[in-house]
Simulated assay, not measured.
Amino acid sequence: MTSKTAKLASCPTHARLVVFVVYPNIVLLDLVGPLQVFSHAPDLETGRNGYDCVVVSVDGGSVGTNTIVSIPTVSAASIADRDIHTLVVVGGDGAIPGMKDPKLVATVTALTARAQRTCSVCSGALVLAATGALDGRRVVTHWDDCRMLADEFPRVQVEMDPIFIKDGSIWTSAGITAGIDMALAIVAEDLGRASSFSVARSMVVQMVRSGGQSQFSPALGRQLRDRAGQFEALHVWMVDNLHLPLSVETLADQMNMGARNFARVYANVMGITPAKAVEAMRVEKAQHALETTERSIKQIAASFGFKTEDRMRRAFLRLLNVSPSDYRQNFHLP
């Protein structure tokens, strides 16, 4: 256990200071998503809010975002005498010039040295990497910035897929709304899962996602591969009919194509066979049912075409590396 991790584990139950670092042209949601989580996370043991939040910039004052809204901030120097529990470097288009701004990099470096936990949201990883704090660390950022992060900072171990990664006292998240997932996971670590679920419910967040989940939703992944929309109508029909035996012949009939030709064209466009696409959709729907309903695993398996619990279990292990029962235990929202 590192010294910072030990400090986190022994942190008293009074409000923990969360410092958000902003600079010109941030993405507004990169800030306000995690800010909303920390601002309303209850410490169920004390009955008070678990965090005290402050937004800082290099010199203080109003900072512009990528919207019409500007953010009031205090200077980083104004909190020099306060202990920082969690530091969050916000992302946005301003991160690209920001990672080369000596004053911003020096400010974030000094704040990181005082923080028990340091985080970045989206492209905020570029600014944080410029301080050297990410050297040798596994990190993630928005998929569109992963190449730049790897090229600019070759000592950083960039991963493209996860929605967030925790490496010791360093947390990094993928694009925009993934910052909410990271913040909820931090609340769960600090205050317990009940507190995290309470915030998620109040924000009408569908679920508390683990960092290992992909920043590419299955539906988005299908759309990215099928850019011409050749199979868009078919995919809608498949999702609505997963209880049916969706053979290649059945899918081909929906496309008015021969089975052999359909299988070949589908695999070329989508990168997977029709059978694997059906299995992925069934797992996706079963995940949602496990998260949000009290239906038994047997009922869910039957509803989405798995036929048996064992077939559903094998599909979950293949695609998610977790059993349906373990998935429900980790992600079910009571």
Rank of each mutant, 00 (worst) to 15 (best):
K4Y: 07
A6M: 13
S10T: 13
P12H: 03
T13V: 06
R16Y: 00
R16L: 07
N25Q: 12
V32K: 01
A41M: 10
P42Y: 13
E45P: 00
D52I: 02
D52Q: 07
D59Q: 04
G64V: 12
T65Y: 01
S70D: 15
P72F: 12
S75T: 08
S78Q: 12
A80L: 05
D83Q: 10
D83W: 09
L87W: 05
A95M: 00
I96G: 04
A113W: 08
S120H: 01
V127F: 03
A130N: 11
A133K: 01
V139W: 03
V139K: 01
D145C: 00
E159T: 11
D161C: 02
F164N: 04
W171V: 09
G175N: 06
G179M: 01
I180V: 14
M182H: 08
A185S: 15
L191D: 10
G192Q: 09
R193V: 09
S195M: 10
V208G: 00
Q215Y: 03
R225T: 10
E232R: 03
P245Q: 15
N261S: 00
V269F: 05
T273F: 11
P274W: 13
A277N: 01
R282G: 15
T293I: 08
R295I: 05
A302D: 08
S303T: 10
K307C: 04
L320A: 02
